[in-house]
């Protein structure tokens, strides 16, 4: 179990997290949805050790191998597609395993034929896929993803959602996915945590008891869960933009 216990974090002048608590069970996918600016990215950065909490504590991360999909692709422009994946694998696995992993994940993402291209030559969506490759190929116990499918079109997005679901089915691991998209959360989350606007509190934790590979957004219980999430998020909107909906 990974847990935020009464965490405080201020970035610059902004009190991003105040007395924030959250649990994410081991070997399950927890999706976090919530309004922009409620501190979702900061939560992942705290988990990854890129930021430290001002107060409270984060437990359950010690000794875990961690992989991370950033909101931006964050590729190394002076390395080719294959080299960008190799970059994180060089010290982590043997040479043969490295080549195997590069081939496997580049093929999975449809990037294998571009393995010798530089990121400059890739489209935005391809860059994001390469960032996903890098994170998936890196040996990890826990995967943190910050809006991983943001810049992708719907068919590709759904394809990647399926790919993540299958990877989890093959080897269940802990994952925390921050997303704006309710459909992503419905298809990938064992638990979906809905956050309020800043200062973030957990509005609800919605469990989805359907195996990942059998999920269909049109089939119960997903539409009901969908409606519940929408209602919660809309409620948040009304709180901050009371004029909305009265036009």
């Amino acid at each position: 179990m990974i847990a935020f216990e009464r965490v405080y974090k201020t970035l610059g002048q902004t009190k991003v997290l105040q007395d924030f608590s959250l649990q994410a069970p081991k070997n399950e996918i927890t999706c976090i949805i919530g309004p922009s600016g409620c501190g979702k990215t900061t939560m992942l950065q705290l988990l990854a050790g890129l930021e430290t909490p001002d107060g409270g504590r984060i437990t359950g991360m010690a000794g875990l191998g961690l992989s991370y999909v950033f909101q931006e692709p964050r590729l190394l422009p002076w390395k080719t597609v294959a080299e960008n994946v190799a970059f994180v694998l060089d010290d982590a696995v043997t040479e043969t395993r490295k080549q195997e992993l590069i081939r496997k994940y580049l093929s999975l993402m449809g990037l294998y034929e571009y393995r010798n291209s530089y990121p400059k030559a890739l489209s935005g969506g391809m860059k994001q896929r390469l960032a996903l490759c890098r994170a998936f190929a890196y040996p990890h116990d826990i995967l943190l993803m910050d809006e991983p499918f943001k810049s992708l079109d719907t068919p590709l997005r759904l394809g990647l959602v399926r790919a993540v679901a299958e990877m989890w089915q093959e080897k269940p691991r802990t994952a925390i996915i921050v997303t704006h998209d309710i459909v992503d959360a419905l298809l990938l989350g064992h638990r979906v945590v809905v956050l309020s606007a800043r200062p973030a509190v957990v509005l609800d934790e919605i469990e989805i008891d359907v195996p990942l590979t059998e999920r269909n957004v049109l089939q119960e219980p997903l539409p009901t869960k969908h409606a519940r999430m929408l209602a919660l998020l809309e409620g948040e909107n009304k709180k901050y933009f009371p004029g909305f909906g009265n036009i």
């Binding site: 961690l66 991370y68 950033f70 964050r74 190394l76 970059f87």
Partner: peptide, 24 residues
């Protein structure tokens, strides 16, 4: 700075950080 975070998350050692992130 964002690439330094990438190196930190993927535990790139100091020598490689210098050679593969700073120098280029």
């Amino acid at each position: 700075k964002q690439l330094l975070q990438v190196a930190q998350v993927f535990q790139i050692n100091r020598a490689r950080l210098f050679r593969e992130i700073y120098l280029p």
